[in-house]
Design a protein around this nucleic acid. Structure first.
Lengths: 341, 341
DNA sequence: TTGTAAGCGTTATCAA
DNA sequence: TTGATAACGCTTACAA
């Protein structure tokens, strides 16, 4: 059923039917009621494709995240979808799978779909290409990870504050040999968490470069990094892990190695995902206000679409949630002390 | 940049440009190369909206799930998106939030968007309305939960086999007082898991109706159900939980109540989500082949769009993964025995 | 092999 | 207040 057919049946012009639905005030009450009644009865639904072509814009927002299965991102997407759908927007969700190729392909597809805006968590694509992808002129909200795209709104965590919180907590417990399992340096979440770690270590009079292992924010890289750390001549007494996926891997590695947590090694990770509190021991984590961040991203997008021109940046603060994976080191770890030697 | 502008610059007709991109074989090699070279250089991207309007169909599939944050569904969505995006399809993802209203609204939106098909996990909407939503004629693949919509393809788990597996495992361990935290009976996953539980109990000579508590597949209902069970005059020695969200709630309740697992009560739940193996104790679960199910759903959709007419049903089998949350009951639970009395 | 022209279902402009 | 008409950007008969 199309609008023209509807008009024919009702013996009015298509324009009138269209107006009755979108600008009811412009239509005489009697006509309006008659039209709306029939529209309702017939189950007619506007063809959004035709409308979009005519209006030159869609009611669709592209959402690109690095990994849909990471509970942090799925919570983010849920929150974004919830906020946008209430305003009549649909979300085309793309999973970049932490891969730049997939991210590029996704952005290309979104450009073709003429999405009215994009909310995305950068996975490393070459930014200059972004504009060439046909995405010029549409609002972009970057979430979690910034790409540096100019003009984009951002919804970010104060990442350095997050690792600082973690380090200070561990130092207060008496740890000196603190390691970091970091994310990639080309992502802001990787670089900033690393930087926060190192400056907090220096502030505590410790060497922040000594024990840093790099992963790719995926489970397996956390596993490997933890193994490397524990195999080193002076294994750390505490490890900070830069995201929840790598933490899962690190946990496996430590269990496999027979280490008791927090007895042999303390652990602090990012993201207060569901399982963090059910795990044994319950994890001390740096928590992000993920629902609020998703809402903020969606609202920034809505504001932009509503006409805001100047770009806006929202920075959220992490909080430390102390649980049982962090405790004082087994023996006072005097700097340079080498047990078993 | 539109196709017409492109044509003007290249001094060919729009039709030729279109053909060069979509049916290259119909264009003379020289013209074709000249066109494609410039298309590439200019960064021109087809306007999918215009194309869809003209062709009468989109390359967009609607995906509706009950709860994006439930790791089972996010894994499903990831798998679906992965498979479909490789074929050039986009996914509009909607979170029904276990609510029929939201589900209806989502389906309405998808109808307007002219999605070319819908993959969805039913949340209880009135089926007859589905057709009136303007969704008639497009392929529907139901996943996880069936609504009974005729003509729809289905990708389902053998749910009854799942609870049967759980009950048989617990009976073999010596349990007699086995309870179920069930999902809602109006969802097939709720009804079938309940039915499998009851028939397996009867097969073991036990009363399957005695201890069944109903939840809504969300965390809090699992918490409440577990509390009710443990407060009963004869608390169960083992509990089967019908999904992972309610399991999280049940776990909280049991820990709060000071019960030791599996010493005081054994636990078996559904869905081998990430945290099931990191939790203390690691959970015995009925596992679904979630990635394969997502792929199957996406492939059924692609086949349908490719022309298959007869409907197709894929049934997947659950497997039991034994971990440490299930063990023999503390004392041999002779039927009718009432310790402490 | 290429061009012309119609049309997909809306909405905006203008005229009545 | 309503209607006629053009246009959004593309694809596809059909014609040349």
């Amino acid at each position: 059923m199309t609008l023209v057919e509807l008009a024919k049946i009702l013996k009015v012009s298509p324009a009138t039917v269209s107006r009755a639905m979108t600008r009811p005030d412009l239509v005489a009450p009697a006509t309006r009621e008659r039209i709306l009644a029939y529209v309702h009865k017939s189950g007619y639904r506007t063809n959004a494709i035709a409308r979009s072509l005519r209006k030159g814009r869609t009611q669709t927002v592209g959402v690109v995240v690095a990994d849909l299965q990471n509970p942090f991102y799925s919570a983010l997407v849920k929150s974004i979808e919830h906020t946008l759908s209430q305003q009549g927007f649909s979300c085309v969700v793309c999973d970049a799978d932490e891969s730049q190729d997939k991210e590029q392909a996704s952005l290309r597809l979104l450009a073709e779909l003429q999405v009215t805006g994009i909310i995305y968590a950068f996975s490393g694509s070459n930014l200059t290409e972004l504009r060439q992808l046909g995405l010029d002129g549409i609002p972009i909200v970057e979430i979690d990870r910034a790409s540096g795209t100019e003009g984009a709104d951002t919804v970010l965590l104060d990442n350095a504050a997050g690792t600082t919180l973690a380090v200070e907590h561990l130092v207060a417990l008496g740890h000196r040999r603190i390691a970091l399992i970091s994310g990639p340096r080309n992502l802001t979440t990787g670089a900033e968490r690393l930087q926060g770690f190192q400056s907090a270590m220096r502030a505590a009079g410790l060497d922040g470069s000594a024990q840093v292992e790099f992963g790719d924010f995926r489970e397996n890289s956390g596993y490997l990094a933890a193994r490397r750390l524990m195999a080193s001549p002076q294994p750390p007494t505490a490890v900070v892990v830069a995201n929840n996926e790598m933490m899962a891997g690190a946990l496996s590695a430590l269990r496999e190695g027979g280490y008791s947590i927090p007895h042999d090694v303390s652990l602090v990770s990012f993201d207060d995902v569901r399982w963090a509190r059910y795990v044994e021991p319950p994890l001390t984590v740096v928590s992000q206000p993920v629902t609020a961040m998703g809402e903020a991203a969606a609202n920034l997008m809505l504001e932009r679409l509503g006409g805001r021109v100047e770009s806006s940046a929202r920075l959220f603060s992490p909080t430390l949630i102390q649980r049982e994976s962090s405790a004082p080191p087994r023996a006072p770890a005097a700097a340079g002390a080498k047990p078993h030697e």
